[in-house]
């Protein structure tokens, strides 16, 4: 599990002092998606202290967080939980850990690979790639057709001219991991 423990990794990467949490759950009380999380946000802090890293990294919680920052705005101890979750997601991806939530990592991967190819996000390509990976190719199909008819889903993607810089950025990012 890497060269440093997960708690230190998270504190260092996110810049958040998760140890100052006093478990009032004001985060969960205001979180729009907390009822769908398998581990409540503050409990992640507790599990980090216990060293139960595997549970955290395989949890749906880290992927379900919508990064809306409501928790961070109201936390009495100034813990930005969205940033904590970013650090955890990045760690899980780096270590190749597959958890309970499959859709979100696939979506993010498809999104970034599109940018690496074109420099811009292209909705039709993104949805196609995502559905190829996760199945449900015909999910939202009716919606898609309606949007297409409204001219909201251009079939052809835009591409940035100067892709060299973007390719370089992605390569260096991979090396930095």
């Amino acid at each position: 599990m890497g060269d440093t423990n997960l708690l230190d990794y998270v504190i260092q990467k996110s810049g958040q002092d998760v140890l100052s949490c006093y478990h009032c759950q004001k985060c969960a009380a205001g979180c729009p998606v907390a009822p769908f999380m398998d581990i409540q946000p503050n409990v992640i802090h507790r599990l980090l202290q216990y060293g139960r890293d595997d549970e955290i990294l395989k949890s749906a919680t880290i992927w379900i967080c919508a990064a809306c920052e409501t928790c961070g705005a109201r936390c009495p101890n100034d813990i930005d939980i969205a940033k904590v979750n970013d650090a955890l997601k990045q760690y899980a991806v780096r270590e190749g850990i597959k958890g309970k939530e499959k859709g979100m990592p696939a979506m993010h991967n498809a999104f970034l690979s599109g940018i690496e190819k074109r420099g811009r996000m292209h909705e039709v390509s993104l949805i196609r790639e995502l559905r190829m990976k996760t199945g449900g190719l015909f999910k939202d199909m009716k919606l898609g057709i309606k949007m297409f008819k409204l001219g909201k889903l251009p079939l052809f993607s835009e591409k940035v001219k100067n892709m060299g810089e973007i390719k370089k950025l992605f390569e260096k990012a991979r090396r930095a991991q």
């Binding site: 990467k13 420099g119 996000m121 100067n162």
Partner: peptide, 21 residues
């Protein structure tokens, strides 16, 4: 010739891209 900001996928998966894009 602007480039995508990376949206929520950037910060979720990669800290370098999160700021870089």
């Amino acid at each position: 010739d602007w480039v995508c900001c990376g949206a929520s996928s950037g910060h979720s998966l990669d800290e370098t891209l999160n700021i870089g894009l």
